[in-house]
């Protein structure tokens, strides 16, 4: 579906459809899922409660990754402290032994590093999962789309979706309550 105008090659990316209220986009999302669409999304100014269920998405799996990150932090801290305090440079100060029984004194740093590693894991794995940073995206070409960060609710459907049809999808979007629908094209 590529169109050549002058020297720019454009390809249909998909549709964006605008909705006015959270309630209407919620119903529309349910209809989209029942309509069998796969590559689509709901863009909203804030996370809508219950939208995961409406779109048929499960709970996020981020927490499991973070658990591993935290564990790595604990182990790093213990290794660092036991390695330096017991192995490399044992010092008997504060009347505390230089063996395993010093572990209460190692607790604060262990705790801090656990949190630090977990937090970094959250930041980086979150960015990887949601595929950011991506400074440019075909959606940003759309006039309708930018409303998502203000007061509009947008459903976007990609042309890559197997159910996508140039006319059928537009009509479908209108039938589920879209106020406006716009075709989005991307430059190649």
């Amino acid at each position: 579906m590529s169109v050549i105008t002058e020297d720019k090659v454009k390809r249909t990316w998909g549709y964006v459809a605008e909705f006015d209220t959270a309630a209407s986009v919620y119903e529309a999302a349910k209809a989209m899922r029942e309509g069998g669409y796969r590559r689509w999304d709901v863009h909203s100014p804030f996370p809508i409660h219950g939208m995961d269920g409406a779109m048929g998405l499960g709970p996020s799996f981020l927490s499991r990754i973070v658990f591993c990150g935290g564990l790595a932090g604990s182990l790093t801290a213990l290794l660092l402290q036991f390695g330096t305090q017991v192995g490399l440079y044992p010092t008997i100060v504060q009347g505390k032994p230089d063996n395993l029984f010093t572990i209460p004194a190692f607790f604060p740093v262990t705790f801090e590093l656990t949190i630090l590693f977990s937090a970094f894991t959250i930041l980086f794995s979150l960015l990887v999962i949601i595929r950011l940073p991506r400074l440019h995206h075909p959606l940003f070409e759309s006039k309708l789309f930018t409303g998502f960060s203000d007061d509009k609710f947008i459903i976007s459907v990609e042309a890559r979706d197997p159910k996508f049809a140039r006319e059928g999808t537009r009509e479908f979007l209108q039938s589920i309550g879209a106020k406006q629908v716009e075709l989005v094209e991307e430059e190649l």
Partner: peptide
């Protein structure tokens, strides 16, 4: 519980 133990253990 940890802090109560810890401070008493540490200060000795």
């Amino acid at each position: 519980a940890f802090i109560q133990f810890f401070l008493i253990w540490y200060a000795n």
